[in-house]
Design a protein around this nucleic acid. Structure first.
Lengths: 145, 145
DNA sequence: CTATATGTAACAATAAAAGTTACATGAAAC
DNA sequence: GTTTCATGTAACTTTTATTGTTACATATAG
């Protein structure tokens, strides 16, 4: 599989959970839907559980459910829960930081990326999980601007 | 070395070129500064050459120079020349696109990232190479907002 | 012609991400 | 209580992307 599909997998799983409200979906069942491994599902949803986005229950008929309505889950919540950076951080060689130019480049890029990251987060916050689910049927999607 | 340091290396090299105007710096010399390999320098600067940001000349006393003043080179130019995506594209399993949910997630994320990418490019355009170079000496840096 | 630079292909090494196996833990059903 | 079926997690393997390296062709100044 390609790089950084975690967010994609997470969203896909969440939409599946939303599509079957009240039902507990097991990691194995989700793994089949997502064409991946149950452990991968547990790893990713485990992070969402810590962020109180989903709940997990063990034992027979156990599995995953949404902790709250899909209208109250934004993509920012999911993004933050995964602790990922959507922005690729540009990094210099650690042995290279004695050079003033390198430090300057790093500092400027760091500031820029922090700034951009906040901007992205604000935009992600405008998209709700329910928007995603709706979009699976209709083409309409809230404009970002 | 860490992931995606190409932009960082490119900027570092460009500032070095700017710091010694008129002088031709060889890939080997730059590689020493950047703590990397001459071939890596050639690969990266080669892309900048195609974008008419730097010039290369062969033979003795050959090397790299800026094609135009550092005040006329923006970070967007460099970024675009490298053909990189600062935003990590979220990708789904190719065998999975028959699922309406996956396609929906992919479409929404694709739209979102395109949108965000344009936003980032606009911001990068405000930063000139000369700003970076100046920053290597002074702490002042143009505010982004 | 020679020395020295870029240009590039081919390959090796490294690092990050995902996939897999194995097993411990917990909760419901009987 | 014991059986069953789920999550939780550690350890390891596989895969992929990136970077580093070697080798050599090409061009150019002197």
């Amino acid at each position: 599989m390609k790089r950084s599909s975690r967010l994609s997998i997470a969203l896909h799983a969440l939409v599946h959970l939303h599509a079957q409200p009240g039902k507990q979906l097991s990691s194995a069942a989700l793994a089949t839907c997502l064409m991946t491994n149950p452990v991968v599902v547990r790893r990713i949803l485990g992070e969402l559980r810590e962020a109180a986005i989903v709940d997990a229950s063990k034992g027979p008929n156990g599995g995953w459910t949404l902790s709250r309505p899909a209208t109250e889950i934004t993509l920012r919540d999911v993004y933050a829960a995964l602790g990922e950076r959507m922005l690729v951080r540009t990094e210099s060689d650690p042995g290279d930081v004695t050079c003033a130019i390198v430090r300057s480049v790093d500092r400027v890029m760091h500031d820029f990326l922090d700034d951009a990251e906040a901007l992205l987060a604000a935009r992600l916050q405008r998209v709700r999980l329910s928007d995603l689910a709706t979009d699976a049927l209709h083409a309409g999607f809230p404009r970002l601007d």
